[in-house]
C-alpha cells in the first residue's frame, strides 16, 4: 500500500451512499493513478453494509462507527474528521461532495489544517507537483483554474462533474474507528422536515424536469410530477414559479437557487433568462420546450421543441411509457 493517500468523504442519504459519493471516486482515481496514491474511503456513521459497499471502491475504509454520527451535524462531523487526521496523519488530498454538509465541513477543515480549499470543482489534475482545480465563477460565465500549494489539498466536487468509475479492482478492508466527543458541541438538531414531493433529490438526480410559468398554474405541476416518475427524475422550478409561491425554494434552479448538472435537463415553459441558465448550463444534455420560438432558452439547449408545455408533457409521458 502506498503511504500517500487520498481521502474520499462518503455521504449517506435516505439509507444509501449518495451518487455524488460514487462520483468522487471518479475524481480520486484520476489523480491517484498519476502519482501512485491510495484511495481511502472515510465513512462517518452509517451501517456496516455502507462501509462494505464503500470498500469495493477503495483500498481501505476508515469507518467512524459512533451513534453520535448517525445524523449529520456539522460540529460533530468536523471534530470527527479532525480527530481522524490527528490519529492517521494528513492525507495528500481530501475530497467531499459540494453538498450542504461538504460545503460546511471543508472550509473549516482548511483553516484547521492551514491549507488550501477549492469549492464546486468540476475537474482536478496534476500540473507537475501542484494539484489544479477548475471551477466555475460568476455563475459559470467564466472558469478559473487554481493551484493548491499545501497538503492536504481540499476540494468539494460538484455533483455530475465526474462519472462513476466502472470496474474497480479494489476490495479494501474496513477499519472501524471509535472516537471520543465532548457532550456539548454547540448545535442541537430539533426537527427535520421533508420539502420535496419527488422521490429524487434535485442536486443528486441524473434527470431533472423543470417547469416555469408556462405551466399556467401550480396544479399543472402534477403533470410534471407524473413525467418525473416515468423518468425517475427530480422536479425543478424557475424563479418566477417559486416567487409566485407555486413551488418551494429548494426546487428552484438558478443563480439564487440550485446549480445543478444532471445528465438530462428538460425545461418546460421556461423562457431562459440568464438567472435560470446559470443554474443549469452545465447539464450534459438540455432539452427545451417552449411556445415562443424566440425564447432565449433555445440558445442554451441541445434539443428544442416549439409547443405548449401543457400539451407536450402528457404526450411525452405516454410516449415514454409505451416505449418501455
Amino acid at each position: 500500500m502506498a503511504d500517500k493517500k487520498i481521502w474520499v468523504i462518503a455521504e449517506i442519504r435516505k439509507g444509501n451512499l449518495t451518487r455524488s459519493t460514487s462520483q468522487l471516486f471518479g475524481a480520486a482515481y484520476k489523480i491517484a493513478d498519476q502519482k501512485n496514491l491510495d484511495v481511502v474511503g472515510v465513512l462517518m456513521g452509517g451501517e456496516k453494509s455502507h462501509a462494505e459497499s464503500l470498500a469495493q471502491k477503495a483500498s481501505l475504509v476508515l469507518w467512524i462507527n459512533d451513534p453520535g454520527l448517525e445524523t449529520y451535524e456539522a460540529t460533530r462531523y468536523f471534530h470527527a474528521i479532525w480527530q481522524l487526521i490527528e490519529s492517521k496523519g494528513k492525507p495528500v488530498v481530501i475530497l467531499a461532495s459540494a453538498s450542504s454538509s461538504g460545503l460546511e465541513l471543508m472550509p473549516r477543515l482548511a483553516i484547521r489544517c492551514e491549507t488550501g480549499y477549492a469549492s464546486f470543482c468540476v475537474d482536478i489534475w496534476w500540473e507537475g507537483s501542484e494539484l489544479v482545480a477548475r471551477r466555475p465563477i460568476y455563475g459559470g460565465r467564466a472558469y478559473e483554474e487554481l493551484a493548491l500549494i499545501k497538503e492536504p489539498a481540499l476540494f468539494t466536487i460538484r455533483s455530475g462533474a465526474f462519472s462513476i468509475p466502472g470496474n474497480l479492482p479494489n476490495s479494501g478492508k474496513v477499519e472501524t474507528i471509535t472516537l471520543t466527543f465532548s457532550d456539548d458541541l454547540g448545535l442541537k438538531l430539533i426537527e427535520r422536515k421533508s420539502t420535496t414531493s419527488s422521490k429524487q433529490e434535485l442536486s443528486e438526480a441524473e434527470c431533472v424536469v423543470a417547469g416555469g410559468r408556462g405551466l399556467g398554474s401550480p396544479e399543472n405541476f402534477k403533470l410534471l410530477e407524473e413525467l418525473a416518475q416515468e423518468l425517475d427524475a427530480a422536479v425543478g422550478s424557475s424563479r418566477a414559479v417559486v416567487d409566485s409561491g407555486w413551488r418551494s425554494h429548494d426546487e428552484q434552479v438558478g443563480k439564487s437557487g440550485k446549480t445543478i448538472s444532471p445528465d438530462l435537463y428538460i425545461a418546460f415553459g421556461i423562457s431562459g433568462v440568464i438567472h435560470h441558465i446559470l443554474g443549469m448550463n452545465t447539464s450534459k444534455v438540455i432539452v427545451a420546450i417552449n411556445k415562443d420560438p424566440e425564447a432565449p432558452i433555445f440558445r442554451n439547449s441541445d434539443y428544442g421543441l416549439v409547443g405548449d408545455a401543457l400539451e407536450v408533457i402528457p404526450v411525452l409521458t405516454k410516449e415514454l411509457r409505451s416505449r418501455r
Binding site: 482548511a110 472558469y143 478559473e144 441541445d302 416549439v306
Partner: peptide, 23 residues
C-alpha cells in the same frame, strides 16, 4: 494557500437541434 493560474472560457454548447415535425 491557493493561487489562480488562469481564467478559461466556459465550455460552449453546439447549435440547438429544433424538432421539425408537427405536434
Amino acid at each position: 494557500r491557493i493561487h489562480r493560474i488562469r481564467y478559461v472560457e466556459p465550455p460552449s454548447r453546439p447549435e440547438v437541434i429544433m424538432m421539425q415535425k408537427p405536434f
